[in-house]
Each structure stands twice: as structure tokens, then as C-alpha cells.
Simulated assay, not measured.
Amino acid sequence: MIFLLFGFRTRDKVASRRWMVCEACGVHAPQTVVKRSTKFTLFFIPLFPVKPGTYYMQCDNCGTLRRVDRRAVTSLAA
């Protein structure tokens, strides 16, 4: 009998961090840009991406997580 172990794994990767005013709490605090990607795994080895990476910005003060456009990420990194 052969068992195939497969599934999906979602990982977060810090893309950049910048001091800005948070839209939710209004505090000048570090805002972390996170890239979230989901990959297909076979025997716990990530093989290929299933969904394109989405970017989120998280406030380090209040923890609010909001989605960010890809073009905005490139302007935030500069």
C-alpha cells in the first residue's frame, strides 16, 4: 500500500518595514509589509505556488492587518 502525503502550506514573509501613521489607530508606528503565498506540498516539500502572492500591511502597535496593492508595495519599499 502506497500513501501519498500532499497538501497546501501558507507562509508569510516580511517584505519591508516602514514607520508610518496607521489608518486604524492613528499612531505613528512601524508598519510591516508581509507577502503571503500558498504552495502545493508533496511529502512536506513545497513544490509550486498555487495562489499568487498577496501583500498585507500590519501595524505593530494595534495589529490591524489590511491588504495592499502590489504597486503600493514597490513605492513603500523605495
Rank of each mutant, 00 (worst) to 15 (best):
P30N: 05
S75N: 05
S75E: 08
A72C: 09
V14H: 02
F44W: 08
G63L: 09
P52V: 05
R17H: 07
R9I: 08
V34R: 03
F40G: 00
S16A: 14
L47S: 02
T38Q: 00
F48E: 08
R67G: 08
C59F: 05
F40K: 00
L65Y: 08
R36P: 05
L76D: 05
P30Y: 03
K35E: 15
T74H: 15
L4P: 02
F3H: 01
K13C: 07
R67Q: 09
P49S: 08
E23M: 13
V73I: 13
P49D: 08
M20C: 09
L5D: 00
L47P: 00
G7L: 03
G7D: 07
E23Y: 12
F3A: 00
K51E: 03
T32K: 12
P46D: 07
R18S: 05
H28M: 06
L4Q: 05
L42S: 02
V21A: 13
R18W: 01
I2P: 07
L5V: 08
F48R: 09
V34Q: 01
T10L: 06
K51N: 02
R71H: 14
C22L: 03
A24L: 13
R71S: 14
L47R: 01
S75G: 02
A77P: 11
D69G: 14
F8N: 10
T64M: 01
A72R: 11
A78S: 14
A24P: 10
F48L: 12
K51W: 00
F48Q: 08
M1H: 11
P49H: 03
R11Y: 07
K13Y: 06
V68Q: 01
A29W: 04
R18M: 04
F8C: 09
C25Q: 11
A72G: 12
Y56E: 12
L76H: 06
R70N: 04
T74P: 10
V27N: 05
C22W: 00
V27L: 05
A77N: 15
R71W: 13
S75P: 02
Y55H: 11
F8V: 11
T54H: 11
P52A: 07
T64A: 00
R70F: 05
I2H: 10
L5Q: 03
A15E: 15
D60L: 00
A29P: 02
D12V: 12
Q58V: 15
G26Y: 06
T54A: 08
C62R: 04
R36T: 08
K51C: 04
Y56P: 09
T54W: 07
F43R: 00
V50S: 04
G7W: 03
A78D: 14
A72D: 13
F43C: 01
V68L: 06
A77K: 15
R17L: 05
F43Y: 03
K35I: 12
R11L: 03
